[in-house]
Design a protein around this nucleic acid. Structure first.
Lengths: 312, 312
DNA sequence: TGGAGCGATTGAAAATTGCTATCGAAGCTG
DNA sequence: CAGCTTCGATAGCAATTTTCAATCGCTCCA
């Protein structure tokens, strides 16, 4: 039964019977039959039938929600039983947005000190991709904004607030200032993330609110690229303070707080809302809470509350 | 896989391989092998092996939590797909505590008007039994106290507050009063529910707080028994106002508010906290919210809030 | 010490599963 | 529009898995 549900998930994700089958490690007829079995068992069509894959039916979409949940729990159960066997052993995959990548080390390093047999995969993703991967069980956790775009059915641990800095060379127009306004930032040429990144959208919004149309002279989906350009002394960029600290400043590069408005956005660890949590997830959550206490005590205090009872 | 998990649940509930097998509709060797397969798949012992069933291991208990969840979701998925097929058809089982039994009709009647193909089973249970049955997937919903003893992983819809009345004959000591105190109630002979009922424990606590030791002259686990005794004109009892209204008063029986302290306890509909909810559950929740608005507008207002995002 | 109860084991029958090969419909191309 | 490709469905067959009836061995208790 559960393997059929995996077929459905794969089919929805690949939108193609053959590729879905390959992803599941079975042949196409097997996957085809599996879907047909689900349809028979429920007595409803799940996929729109045509000469090729068109899409799921309404019932199929609903079934997909359940399938994701059940398959997710089944995998979590496996992981959890493994953890009961050997202590925490295994693999955590984390999807993080580019501006959060540098701080992941603050999470993974103390975690590994406590659980040496856990391996990590950290993926750079847009916030939308990160949530999608969490949903599709392709990662165990995500680090992204938790106060902006709507999240799905997840639990969050607030980690810190992003405060923005202008990174610019010491001898540039604002290189010696102790703060600049967004309006001023808007006047100089910038390297920024690509617009699929939420950080870029936030910066765009702040620039527009201050009356300038964002027109970066260079954009990339990697912070490394932006930073490398700033290091040449000829470019500027905007990045969160935490990230600027991690990258380290040189004599040539200064980090200038941007004010007016001094807007902040909260970053957090996002994990599937599953009860019981797997031992792995709950260890990660525990570490994240500890980290939050260090990074931003005010946030952490609020997050200490127990899980509220859902009132529907 | 899922059927094996059902084996585990049945085994935990029956504490006996043979009976568990029967409950699952398989033979004992099949169930035995199923459990062994789970153990093999996870690489851990789930049951304490001995000449007879002793209990689950620690890992087994943990696995049981997951199994309940996964099996519950799988059943919910089936129900939900059925509902998508024919509209709302099927069976809702509700466990309610005795003092709430009368108001169930206010939930089921309008529900059935909208969904004529749904059948109901309403079971009278103690609050502890009701929650256990909800947990074991033996009922779809419960109606019980939501502000006293801790609930499990469930969603609640507050319905109304229980306010207590003395039901007594018109010609008895307090028959003409417009209120009595708990201390006064403690002085007269009462028929009360048995102590396994939470309502009884609440009343006991209130009586003790007012300085009398509860010593009912008759106790029963059925409100009907209590009411029948009061109707004879020779007995008194304490019951929630809502229930007293439903049973209807005669000239001979009066309902006197009890004050000092005028304590109230909240009753609510309790359903599994599952996302997505089945069509059935969500229709029931919707009806319960509507009912709450009629019964106790102040409560309903608070309950309108969306499900809070869990912050762990 | 013998019987009853419980769970494990065994071997054979039955059911299910998954594969290869192939088909037919639809879309694309020259 | 013929030929080619892609996609999903179907058929037949081999392998695996599942289930059951029968029975065994252990333990507890009378």
């Amino acid at each position: 039964m559960i393997d059929r549900l995996e077929f459905l998930i794969a089919l929805a994700s690949e939108q193609h019977f053959g590729r879905a089958a390959e992803a599941c490690g079975v042949t196409q007829p097997t996957l085809s039959a599996g879907i047909k079995q689900l349809e028979g068992m429920f007595g409803v069509m799940l996929v729109q039938r045509g000469s090729r894959f068109i899409g799921l039916t309404e019932e199929g979409e609903r079934a997909l929600e359940w399938a994701r949940r059940i398959v997710g729990d089944a995998r979590a159960m496996r992981q959890d039983m493994d953890a009961m066997k050997h202590g925490l052993v295994g693999h955590i995959r984390i999807a993080a947005i580019p501006t959060a990548l540098a701080m992941i080390a603050m999470l993974t390093t103390p975690f590994r000190a406590q659980h040496p047999d856990v391996r990590f995969t950290v993926l750079s993703r847009t916030s939308v991709e990160a949530l999608a991967q969490l949903e599709n069980l392709e990662v165990e956790a995500a680090v992204s904004y938790i106060d902006n775009e709507p999240l799905g059915r997840v639990s969050v641990v607030p980690l810190y607030r992003e405060r923005y800095r202008l990174l610019t060379s010491a001898d540039s127009e604002f290189g010696q200032r102790d703060h600049v306004t967004w309006a001023e930032v808007g006047r100089i040429p910038l390297c920024l993330l690509t617009p699929d990144m939420q950080n870029r959208r936030i910066i765009d919004k702040l620039l527009r609110a201050s009356g300038t149309e964002p027109a970066p002279t260079l954009q990339s989906n990697s912070m490394i690229v932006l930073y490398a350009h700033v290091r040449t002394g000829r470019w500027s960029t905007v990045m969160p303070a935490k990230l600027a600290e991690t990258l380290g400043l040189t004599d040539a590069v200064r980090s200038v707080p941007i004010v007016d408005p001094e807007e902040t956005h909260t970053m957090g660890l996002i994990v599937p809302d599953r009860e019981p949590m797997t031992a792995m997830t709950s260890a990660l959550v525990k570490e994240a809470k500890r980290l939050a206490k260090v990074l931003e005590p005010s946030l952490a205090a609020g997050a200490e509350s127990l899980r509220p009872r859902p009132i529907v």
